[in-house]
Amino acid sequence: MDPNSVEILLVEDNPADAELAIRELKKHNMANNLFHVRNGEEALDFIFATGKYADTRNMLYTPKVILLDIQMPKVNGIEVLSTLKSDSRTRQTPVVILTSSKENPDIQKCYELGANSYIVKPVNFEGFAEAIRNLGFYWLLLNQTPV
């Protein structure tokens, strides 16, 4: 896949959770332009076209939405989120938080940092669609409009 045509960036360290999310999105033909990174460090490298993505990525092509797990080793979701939302180049990119419980106190913190929505895992299409609707660009993603 061309790393510059990625529309959904999934940041998830748990392989089972990632696979279930990808399966669910595939069922609804939404995983074609999905890219999966396994931790926060890699997510930042991908988005900012640094590290191992320095040669293959142009950061002007930002993903349309980032699905971001909170609890990850090394750089966690909250740190990724605060980096994205404090950089003018990435501030506009919608971020949907993946959480294992809707009672997670981190959700509030994520909203304060500028997260756009959250989905409780396991990710299912209904939850995802709802999150996208909340973002207000449902049409953008589902209609596959060109960038």
Binding site: A16, L20, S100, S101, E103, K121, P122
Partner: peptide, 14 residues
């Protein structure tokens, strides 16, 4: 809350 729930999600999901 995080770590015990993760494997359960895998069991149910799969």
């Amino acid at each position: 809350s995080h770590d015990l729930r993760a494997p359960l999600r895998g069991i149910i999901g799969f």
